[in-house]
């Protein structure tokens, strides 16, 4: 019996090796390298303390990326959740063409983000893109939303909502299916309207799903940036530059790994705080059983 812990350890080992090798050790190394300068061929890295972090405060591109990401998250997260819920409620009921609709809503999720980027690139193309061809029917002038610093962030934001909503819908759909029909019958006996039922019964019952989706949405709003590479490369004038894209560029195009490490640490810290906050604070408000 005393050797139980050995078995436990052995059973945990495969998962631990993977997790350590690809998540924990790189994360720790990133934290360490954020205190050193970038090594160049002829000049090895040396300890610089908080210099890389101080540099971030001066880097207006980093600051702009932070703001962009904040706006991006603040809109994509609620928008994709609300649209997902509406779509789920819509296809939850029995109706003609149901499976076709469900498939249509889910299709964006299956597409790779690079393909999505290319599709939307065509939608947005001024003059002969899809949107402008439709606008042309109504005599509206050509737009160049992707070429203007005021609107470009919203063009990439719409793509993310479009991509995420279908995915989240599946979870909501599954959650809705688990709500017992007796509840609806009971509620209608009590004279509760559809809205009251939705607010008082449905929403609380799907709260665990909402929490799960929210965690995913937050992570996605930082993580899903593939379409930026295809559509805007962060431009014009950094107006559509998101944090992770900026980190990629600083690390693997500028080869300036020190500030990139510092930025990664900042993101890690913020995301961890958010996740902890969600689990400890929101968990109490979530009704699991």
């Amino acid at each position: 019996m005393k050797r139980d812990w050995i078995y436990a350890l052995l059973l945990l080992l495969p998962a631990m090796v993977l997790l350590m090798g690809f998540t924990h050790i790189p994360a720790i190394e990133t934290v360490i390298s954020s205190f050193f300068s970038t090594p160049h061929g002829r000049r090895p890295a040396h300890f610089v303390g908080l210099e890389n972090y101080r540099y971030l405060l001066e880097d207006d591109v980093f600051i702009r990326s932070c703001w962009n990401n904040l706006i991006y998250s603040a809109i994509t997260i609620p928008a994709s959740i609300i649209i997902a819920l509406v779509m789920a409620l819509f296809v939850h009921n029995r109706m003609a063409g149901l499976s076709f609709l469900r498939m249509a809503f889910f299709t964006p999720t299956v597409l790779p983000m690079i393909a999505v980027g290319n599709i939307w690139l065509f939608f947005y193309t001024p003059s002969f893109g899809l949107i402008d061809q439709i606008r042309g029917l109504f005599g509206l002038p050509a737009q160049n939303w992707m070429g203007s610093t005021d609107t470009v962030l919203y063009t990439v934001l719409v793509v993310a909502v479009w991509k995420n909503a279908g995915f989240f819908m599946i979870f909501y759909l599954a959650a809705l299916q688990t709500i017992p029909t007796q509840l609806r019958e009971a509620a209608s006996l009590e004279g509760a309207g559809r809205w009251t039922f939705f607010r008082r019964v449905t929403v609380p019952l799907i709260m665990p799903t909402t929490l799960f989706i929210m965690v995913n949405a937050i992570i996605n709003s930082v993580r899903l940036i593939d379409h930026i590479f295809i559509m805007t490369q962060g431009g014009p004038n950094n107006a559509s530059r998101l944090l992770l894209y900026h980190i990629y560029e600083v690390a693997f195009e500028y080869w300036d790994t020190a500030p990139a490490s510092a930025m990664t640490v900042v993101i890690l810290a913020v995301l961890s705080l958010l996740a902890i906050g969600q689990f400890f604070w929101l968990d109490r408000k979530v009704h699991y059983r």
Partner: peptide, 9 residues
């Protein structure tokens, strides 16, 4: 055209 136009298009 005003704004930034795309290389690829």
């Amino acid at each position: 055209e005003e704004g930034v136009t795309a290389w690829s298009a």
